[in-house]
Computed example of a mutant assay.
Amino acid sequence: MNGFGTATIYIVQTLGSLYLLIVLLRFILQLVRADFYNPLSQFVVKATQPLLKPLRRIIPGFGGLDLASLVLAVLLQLLLMVAVLTLMGYGVGGYLLQLLVWSIIGVTALFLKVFFFALIVSVILSWVAPGSYNPAAQLVNQICDPLLAPIRRILPNLGGLDISPIFAFIALNLIDMLVINNLAAMTGMPKILSPFL
């Protein structure tokens, strides 16, 4: 593949993955019941609304979960994989079911990465700007709190030292290593198709 083809794949994958992240954030923000009036939440809602509005007519929510945004994330990952494979010169006609499985694995991997990096940002913010009222800091804390709350209930109070993120990191990494990477390997998923693995 020439340099132009590689650059095209890079651009498609980068821009597609960025929008996929925004769509998945829409699902996560509703899952953790983040503040809807936060400016960053409003950006996510406005960026995803054009594609989600027609999809919501077909796929209703269930039990407080925004299934339409989750389905949209899987469809976007599928389209992204088809685009990358097509640009690489591969035919995808007979492999749509396998690509759908790979798309679900890719979206699940991204789901874990969002929580992983939100935890990193939360830990850094707790050192440099504890109690910050910045909209980004508040949103990161709202994403991390449901993950950390069960761990905090189990751990003893260590006098102001919160080590719950360490256990959350371990849990997320174990799920990634033992579940996501093994599923990707079992299904023969190429690394190029999901930068989140």
Rank of each mutant, 00 (worst) to 15 (best):
N2R: 10
G3K: 12
G5Y: 12
G5L: 14
G5W: 11
T6M: 09
A7Y: 13
T8A: 15
I11P: 04
Q13A: 13
Q13C: 09
T14E: 08
S17K: 01
Y19V: 04
L20P: 01
L21K: 00
L21Y: 02
I22A: 10
V23C: 04
L24E: 08
I28G: 01
L29P: 00
L29M: 02
L31K: 08
L31Y: 09
L31Q: 06
R33Y: 00
A34R: 06
F36H: 13
Y37E: 04
S41Q: 01
Q42D: 10
F43D: 03
Q49N: 12
P50G: 08
P50Q: 07
L51M: 13
L51T: 09
I59L: 03
G64K: 07
L65A: 05
L67K: 04
L67Q: 07
L67G: 07
A68K: 01
V74C: 08
L76C: 07
L76K: 06
L79A: 12
L79Y: 09
M81H: 03
M81P: 03
A83Y: 02
L85H: 01
T86F: 11
L87W: 06
L87Q: 09
M88H: 05
G91H: 02
G91N: 05
G94I: 00
L96A: 10
Q98K: 12
V101E: 00
V101M: 09
W102P: 03
S103F: 05
A109K: 05
F111E: 04
L112D: 04
L112W: 09
F117R: 03
F117M: 07
V128E: 05
P130I: 14
G131V: 13
G131L: 12
G131T: 13
G131E: 12
P135E: 08
A137Q: 08
N141Y: 12
C144G: 06
P146C: 08
L147K: 13
I151Q: 07
N157L: 13
N157A: 15
D162R: 02
S164T: 15
I166N: 13
I166D: 13
F167N: 00
I170R: 11
I170E: 11
A171L: 15
N173K: 14
D176V: 13
M177P: 00
N182Y: 14
L183D: 01
A184Q: 09
M186D: 14
T187R: 11
T187N: 10
T187E: 09
T187S: 15
I192S: 10
P195S: 10
L197I: 14
L197E: 02
L197C: 07
